[in-house]
């Protein structure tokens, strides 16, 4: 029995490091890291700036099994430079998705009992502020490479995203997370493009008071993202909760997984435009204004309730498509 794996399952996901998350999201003893710390492929750009590099460049990538599916796992480490995407970090992410596609092609090329072997899935744990400024240009380009790889994976390899770390998912990685097939968040997780601190700095405190933690969480936190359906699931902040949800989703047929997407087709653009309309002309001042519009009455109760109560009682954006209101 894998004691370390068992121990990790009951830990808060948010407190684990990227390697522990990658290891424990997979079935026991199934995770093999690629380009791990032993290869010491550190960023050559950081030392001249006086910044100590890290052996994995802030992201753990590896192969494992999730439930019955072979999986490629990407897990960002927010402790190192805020999870910022630099050159090596970015290329590791891009390669992970390309290799998942190759793995799937190999599975498909084996005629015999291909379905019983499962379908390769990509699992990405986002914990990042986006581009690493010390390697800004390479980081930016890596985002475009990841988005392209996502599009290449469409309908072939499902991409399951997780946002449950202490930094959350901001900057360019915000739209990468929005482009996955299924997104799972916890209460700790936050998702956005421009971080609260940046809005405050660029526009002013009257636009966004970044010191107001409650405001930050109700604007970017998992509960709000669940209500607007940007997050498909909200789970408890435990390793086990994330792992079970990922394994469940990975077992779905690819069509069902793809139906959870929020962007990526012309119809979805028009659908999202309806949500945007609700906010035009300053009609929305606060995320809770939206919650009310979707029929949530006792918002304080929803906010304070535990995750399962919240999930059961929250009224989500009626996306407008049949079968989406479950």
């Amino acid at each position: 029995m894998d004691d370390r794996w068992n121990l990790l399952q009951n830990q808060p996901f948010s407190r684990l490091n990227a390697r522990e998350r990658a290891y424990a999201i997979c079935n026991p003893e199934s995770f093999t890291e690629l380009l791990g710390p032993r290869l010491k492929l550190t960023s050559p750009h950081l030392p001249p700036m006086g910044q100590t590099p890290q052996f994995d460049d802030g992201v753990v990538v590896g192969l494992g099994t999730v439930g019955k599916a072979p999986a490629v796992v990407v897990s960002q480490e927010s402790k190192f430079l805020g999870g910022g995407v630099g050159e090596a970090h970015g290329t590791k992410m891009v390669m992970a998705i390309r290799l998942a596609l190759r793995g799937q092609e190999i599975l498909e090329s084996r005629s015999k009992s291909s379905e019983s072997r499962g379908r390769v899935a990509v699992v990405i744990s986002f914990d990042t502020g986006g581009v690493r400024l010390q390697e800004a240009n390479a980081g930016l380009l890596a985002h475009s490479e990841v988005m392209d790889a996502f599009q290449a994976a469409r309908g072939k390899v499902p991409i399951i995203g997780i946002v449950g770390g202490t930094v959350g998912c901001f900057g360019g990685m915000g739209f990468v997370a929005a482009s996955v097939d299924v997104l799972i968040m916890s209460d700790v997780g936050r998702l956005g493009l421009t971080g609260p601190g940046v809005i405050e700095e660029v526009v002013g405190t009257e636009e966004f008071d970044a010191a107001n933690r409650a405001l930050v969480w109700r604007t970017t936190g998992g509960r709000h993202r669940f209500i607007t359906r940007d997050a498909d699931f909200i789970v408890e902040d435990t390793m086990k909760a994330f792992r079970e949800k990922v394994a469940e989703v990975a077992s779905w047929p690819i069509e069902k997984i793809a139906s959870k997407r929020i962007i990526g087709t012309g119809e979805m653009v028009l659908e999202q435009m309806r949500l945007v309309d609700l906010a035009a002309n300053d009609r929305i001042q606060d995320s809770w204004d939206l919650w009310r519009q979707f029929g949530n009455e006792d918002i304080e109760y929803l906010w304070d309730s535990n995750v399962s109560e919240f999930e059961a009682n929250a009224r989500r954006w009626p996306r407008g498509r049949v079968g989406d209101n479950d």
């Binding site: 956005g192 940046v198 809005i199 966004f208 604007t219 607007t228 940007d230």
Partner: peptide, 13 residues
């Protein structure tokens, strides 16, 4: 970089 943009989720756009 607006607040309402974050509430709706400009990353989707």
């Amino acid at each position: 970089p607006g607040k309402v943009e974050e509430i709706i989720g400009i990353y989707k756009s």
